[in-house]
């Protein structure tokens, strides 16, 4: 009961304090707001870059061409051998007849040339289309597939894929670095602003100490205040993020410049981002207040 009373009092005091120290609160809130907007933009960019690279990576396929005279039994055996290779996510068999059929469907030129081919004069080869779990391991997996008897050729865009992997790795590292740096900068910026506002209230803290408040009793209302500042400070960034991203997505039909670069769908993405912003705002507000008060309690 006593603990509950103290908790309620702390929440009430924190709320009153945000209002009473309005100009100081505004300083903290605007610093949280501005930095969260920047954080939000970088999260949106990072997610979209990650999404784009993931889509591209998913498209990378190893094509294993089988010998022309391979028997249906052998094709099944190859399937078993593929299933034993580690790191393969999925594989599909495409017979030369299937390939012929799909090629005929793609263009009239092909149709004209190929429609007369029957099973005996079809020059195409049966294939397995293989996707790997981790693109970094594609070279090794391709080598293992090459080693399977009756596999005549393995193609997966060697060289291009390696470059792609390198580029994407760099992009990912840079974007994660930017977000991490921004969050650190935000924490410092917000904690500094809160430090300034709390400095203005050091008399209040000294009076609290004077009347016998323990350090933890003094810190808690400030931490709750940080929580409120965090919540209030994240409102504008969340609204701005949700509306502007949804607007952007609708106006670009979910893609940028070409169908190749797809934006992440707003639902549930925007909920996740909003929660992240709220979480960052609250955490940084609370930690910032905690740090700032701590300085005034060392006497």
């Amino acid at each position: 009961m006593k603990a509950f009373r103290i908790l309620i009092r702390n929440i009430r005091d924190a709320f009153i304090s945000v209002i009473r120290n309005f100009s100081l609160s505004i300083a903290s809130i605007s610093s949280i707001t501005i930095t969260l907007v920047v954080v939000s933009i970088s999260i949106l960019l990072t997610y979209n870059v990650a999404n784009f690279t993931r889509l591209v990576e998913e498209d990378v396929t190893i094509v294993a061409f089988l010998d022309k005279d391979v028997s249906p039994e052998r094709i099944l055996e190859i399937k078993d051998e593929l299933s034993k290779i580690e790191g393969i996510e999925s594989y599909i068999f495409e017979s030369k007849a299937d390939i012929l059929k799909s090629m005929i469907e793609t263009s009239d030129v092909f149709k004209n040339i190929m429609s007369n081919w029957d099973d005996t004069d079809n020059p195409l080869q049966d294939t397995y289309l293989i996707k790997v779990e981790d693109l970094h391991k594609i070279d090794g997996i391709a080598d293992q597939i090459k080693g399977i008897p009756n596999v005549s050729l393995v193609k997966y865009g060697e060289g291009v894929v390696q470059n792609l992997i390198k580029t994407f790795d760099i992009i990912r590292q840079i974007s994660i670095g930017i977000v991490a740096a921004l969050i650190i900068v935000t924490t410092f910026l917000i904690s500094n602003t809160i430090k300034l506002t709390i400095f203005a209230r050091k008399t209040e803290i000294s009076i609290m100490r004077l009347v016998g408040a323990s350090n933890i009793t003094i810190k808690i209302p400030f931490v709750f205040e940080g929580l409120f500042l965090g919540i209030i400070g994240s409102i504008i960034p969340i609204i701005a993020t949700v509306y502007s991203y949804a607007f952007l997505y609708d106006n670009f039909d979910g893609q940028v410049f070409s169908p190749f670069i797809k934006l992440v769908a707003p639902n549930p993405f925007l909920y996740v981002v909003s929660l992240m912003l709220l979480g960052i705002g609250i955490t940084v507000g609370m930690i910032g207040s905690w740090w700032a008060v701590r300085r005034h309690l060392k006497a």
């Binding site: 009473r20 120290n21 008399t203 209040e204 000294s206 009076i207 100490r209 004077l210 009347v211 016998g212 408040a213 323990s214 350090n215 009793t217 309690l297 060392k298 006497a299």
Partner: peptide
């Protein structure tokens, strides 16, 4: 210790020349 100062402060009252009241 610094963290235990409150134990003393709860046993005593202190009054200053400049009152030290919360203005708000």
């Amino acid at each position: 210790r610094n963290g235990s100062v409150y134990k003393l402060r709860r046993k005593i009252g202190v009054v200053f020349q400049d009152f030290k009241l919360l203005s708000k």
